[in-house]
């Protein structure tokens, strides 16, 4: 099986569990292949956890879930040193972050201190503890969720930390027919448990390697940079996309090309990904109203900006 077929198979596999959301499944694979992390922002109960779980199941990777609460401590994520009486020494007990796929549920419920420990792990792929560094498992992907409806007692992630996520997605409610199918299957076991793993962790690493070899033609790079430049100059935004953001968009576009079975990027990839990759990396100008619904607003602004940039021919 070549890369394209494997990827298709995985998508179909997950689609058996998550009904009617092929786009979300595709994007989560893009995030995985681009070595990125995913932020799911939606109301509870639309399948955020299921998505993460079924992705992990079909990859034959280790999967851990951390429920973030306000009293969660960094050590609850990273791990603790416990005194071992037999050895008369402190022993590092790795935390839940030592897994391939980590679901960070309701990440905005915990304190900034805990958040930053997670984010540090995400960006550096290693843990520093007691002057020792422990490398994390590879592949490593964090799927974080946050609930936009509840705000009280939450600690919204600052923009600089949102930047660590490759893309921000919404799942959205399924269509009535799809919802019906879900109801029919609900008597059975947790559906994600049924899935058969299709890839090993090593295969995933190989696929990630393959993403690097996807060709991005020069004019497409120019197009990407034009979009980034445009966000920096727009007076709707008080903060444009950083270089890291541009890099993320480029990587995501390459991964999407691979997922779609191509060995080269198209302007279409950039245009499609720009709203979901860039919208959490910008700050909407204060004159655009309060932050409350800035996600939709940011996405819309990015879409408008992209719409005003000519595509290379």
């Amino acid at each position: 099986m070549n890369a394209t077929e494997i990827i298709l198979a995985i998508q179909e596999n997950i689609a058996r569990v998550i009904k009617g959301k092929p786009h979300v499944i595709e994007m989560s694979l893009v995030a995985l292949l681009a070595r990125g992390h995913l932020l799911l922002e939606d109301v509870p109960g639309v399948g955020k956890t299921t998505l993460a779980h079924s992705l992990a199941r079909s990859l034959d990777c280790s999967f851990k879930r951390i429920q973030f609460t306000s009293d969660l401590l960094p050590s609850d994520i990273v791990g603790v040193s416990i005194f071992n009486r037999q050895k008369q020494a402190f022993e590092f007990m790795p935390g839940p972050i030592f897994a391939n796929i980590v679901l960070a549920d309701e990440i905005n419920r915990t304190t900034p201190k805990t958040q930053s420990s997670l984010l540090e792990a995400m960006s550096e792929a290693q843990i520093s503890f007691d002057n020792k560094t422990y490398p994390l498992n590879q592949p490593f992907m964090v799927i974080a969720t946050q609930n936009p409806a509840e705000y009280h007692g939450t600690f919204p992630l600052p923009e600089s930390q949102l930047d660590r996520f490759l893309m921000r997605l919404r799942i959205g409610y399924p269509s009535p027919e799809e919802e019906k199918k879900v109801l029919h299957r609900s008597q059975l076991l947790h559906p994600a448990e049924e899935l058969q793993p299709l890839l090993t962790a090593h295969d995933v690493l190989l696929l990630q390697e393959q993403v690097d070899h996807v060709l991005m033609e020069e004019s497409i790079t120019d197009y990407l940079l034009a979009i980034v430049q445009c966000t920096r100059q727009s007076d709707l935004l008080s903060l444009g996309v950083s270089t890291r953001g541009a890099l993320a968009l480029s990587r995501a576009a390459k991964a999407l090309s691979l997922v779609r079975g191509r060995t080269f990027c198209l302007p279409d990839d950039i245009k499609e990904l720009a709203p979901i990759v860039l919208s959490h990396r910008i700050m909407v100008a204060r004159t655009q109203g309060i932050r409350q619904r800035s996600f939709e607003q940011a996405e819309r602004i990015i879409q408008d900006l992209v719409e005003s940039i000519p595509v290379p021919v």
């Binding site: 709707l236 655009q288 109203g289 309060i290």
Partner: peptide, 18 residues
């Protein structure tokens, strides 16, 4: 036209037109 969801009296907001 895109407008912010809410305006506040005497507070300038940016409206955009495509």
């Amino acid at each position: 036209r895109h407008l912010p969801d809410h305006l506040m009296v005497n507070e300038p907001t940016t409206a955009t037109l495509v």
